[in-house]
Amino acid sequence: MNDDEDGYFGEHVAATYDDDSGHEFQPEVVAATADFLAGLAGEGRALELAVGTGRIALPLAGRGVPVHGIDMSRAMVRRLRAKPGSDAIGVTIGDFATTRVDGTFSVVYLVFNTIMNLTTQEAQVQCFRNAAAHLEPGGCFVVETVLPDLRKLPGGQDVVPFHVSPTRWAFDHYEVATQAMSSNYIEVADGRGAYRSIPFRYVWPAELDLMAQLAGLRLRERWDGWTREPFTNDSGGHVSVWEKPVD
Rank of each mutant, 00 (worst) to 15 (best):
residue 185 Y to N: 05
residue 119 T to L: 08
residue 179 Q to F: 02
residue 169 W to Q: 12
residue 113 N to E: 03
residue 148 P to R: 01
residue 209 D to K: 03
residue 192 R to S: 08
residue 203 V to M: 10
residue 206 A to N: 12
residue 206 A to K: 15
residue 153 L to E: 10
residue 129 R to Y: 04
residue 179 Q to P: 01
residue 146 V to F: 00
residue 160 V to C: 01
residue 138 G to R: 03
residue 152 K to F: 13
residue 180 A to M: 07
residue 206 A to P: 07
residue 104 T to R: 07
residue 187 E to H: 10
residue 198 I to M: 07
residue 157 Q to P: 04
residue 124 Q to W: 03
residue 103 G to C: 02
residue 141 F to C: 02
residue 170 A to N: 11
residue 202 Y to Q: 01
residue 98 T to M: 03
residue 120 T to K: 11
residue 128 F to L: 08
residue 99 T to N: 08
residue 112 F to Q: 14
residue 156 G to N: 04
residue 197 S to P: 09
residue 123 A to Q: 15
residue 145 T to K: 00
residue 177 A to S: 14
residue 170 A to M: 15
residue 170 A to S: 15
residue 136 E to M: 14
residue 171 F to N: 06
residue 99 T to A: 15
residue 156 G to V: 09
residue 140 C to L: 08
residue 195 Y to V: 14
residue 165 S to R: 07
residue 163 H to K: 08
residue 202 Y to T: 00
residue 129 R to E: 14
residue 172 D to V: 03
residue 200 F to M: 03
residue 127 C to S: 14
residue 128 F to N: 04
residue 112 F to R: 06
residue 183 S to E: 09
residue 171 F to R: 04
residue 176 V to P: 09
residue 168 R to A: 13
residue 99 T to Y: 07
residue 198 I to V: 11
residue 151 R to T: 09
residue 121 Q to G: 13
residue 207 E to F: 09
residue 180 A to Y: 09
residue 104 T to S: 06
residue 111 V to G: 08
residue 194 A to Y: 12
residue 211 M to E: 11
residue 129 R to T: 09
residue 123 A to R: 14
residue 139 G to T: 04
residue 110 L to N: 13
residue 135 L to A: 00
residue 148 P to F: 00
residue 145 T to R: 01
residue 144 E to Q: 01
residue 175 E to Q: 04
residue 156 G to Q: 05
residue 109 Y to I: 08
residue 160 V to G: 01
residue 173 H to E: 15
residue 134 H to C: 12
residue 211 M to V: 05
residue 145 T to N: 00
residue 211 M to S: 13
residue 173 H to F: 08
residue 201 R to P: 10
residue 140 C to P: 09
residue 183 S to D: 09
residue 128 F to A: 07
residue 183 S to Q: 11
residue 133 A to K: 02
residue 166 P to Y: 05
residue 185 Y to L: 15
residue 122 E to A: 15
residue 193 G to W: 11
residue 122 E to S: 11
residue 125 V to P: 06
residue 169 W to D: 06
residue 106 S to V: 06
